[in-house]
C-alpha cells in the first residue's frame, strides 16, 4: 500500500491504516522524544500526544514521499517534546561559560566506553545548551529554525551551539588520540 493510500485511510479514521503508520514511525518518534525528555515515563506520555496530533492534523500533510512524511513527523515530535520540556521547567539559556564542569577527570572516565562518554558529556550540558546543540547537530536544524522553535534570536542559538561544542571538545579531546 502506498503512503498516500495509507494516509487517505488514516484521515478517514481507519484503525488498520493508523496502526500501519504507527508501527512505521513509532521508533523514530520515540527516539526523538526520548532524546529531549530523557526518561521513558515522560516519553510515553509525549509520544502518545505526538501520535494524536499526527492523526488529527494529517490534512496538513502535503508531501507524501517518505522524506516528506518523516520531516513532518519530526517537526511535530520536536515541537511536542519541547513543549513538554517548557511545561516542566522553562528552558534557561545562559551565556555564562563558567557553569560548565570543564575539569576532565581522566581517571574518572577511563573505563567508560566511547558511546557512554559522549552521551554523558552531552547530558552534562545545561538543558538549554543541550537542547539547542541536539537540534542543530542531531536533528540538523538551521539556527533560524531553532530560533523559531524556541522563540529566541538566531545569534543566541549560534552562540549556545558554539559554546556547547567548545565544552564538548574540551571534555572529549583527551580520548581522541586513543
Amino acid at each position: 500500500m502506498k503512503n498516500q493510500e495509507i494516509i487517505a485511510l488514516c484521515k478517514k479514521g481507519d484503525r488498520t491504516a493508523q496502526r500501519l503508520l504507527f508501527d512505521e514511525y513509532y521508533n523514530y518518534v520515540y527516539t526523538i522524544c526520548f532524546r529531549y525528555v530523557q526518561n521513558h515515563h515522560d516519553a510515553e506520555d509525549v509520544v502518545s500526544i505526538i501520535f494524536n496530533r499526527i492523526f488529527k492534523y494529517l490534512d496538513q500533510l502535503q508531501d507524501f514521499a517518505d522524506n516528506g512524511i518523516k520531516k513532518w513527523i519530526q517537526t511535530i515530535s520536536i515541537n511536542e517534546s519541547l513543549r513538554f520540556l517548557k511545561s516542566k521547567k522553562p528552558i534557561q539559556l545562559s551565556d555564562d561559560f563558567s557553569q560548565f564542569n570543564l575539569t576532565s577527570n581522566e581517571k574518572e572516565e577511563i573505563d567508560q566506553s566511547e558511546i557512554s562518554r559522549i552521551k554523558n558529556a552531552v547530558n552534562e550540558l545545561p538543558t538549554g545548551y543541550r537542547t539547542i546543540f541536539l537540534l542543530n547537530v542531531v536533528e540538523g536544524l538551521t539556527h533560524a529554525e531553532i530560533a523559531k522553535y524556541l522563540g529566541i534570536s538566531i545569534n543566541t542559538s549560534k552562540s549556545q551551539v558554539l559554546k556547547a561544542k567548545k565544552y564538548l571538545q574540551i571534555k572529549l579531546m583527551p580520548y581522541a588520540t586513543r
Binding site: 527516539t31 521513558h40 516519553a43 552521551k119 552531552v122 542531531v138
Partner: peptide, 25 residues
C-alpha cells in the same frame, strides 16, 4: 578529535537509542 568527526559521532550516538532503552520503548 576533529570537530566534524566529533559531531558525526555525537549524531550517530543520539540518532538511535541503546538496546535497553529500545526494549523499554
Amino acid at each position: 578529535m576533529q570537530q566534524d568527526n566529533m559531531e558525526n559521532k555525537i549524531k550517530s550516538v543520539f540518532d538511535s537509542i541503546d538496546d535497553w532503552d529500545s526494549k523499554e520503548a
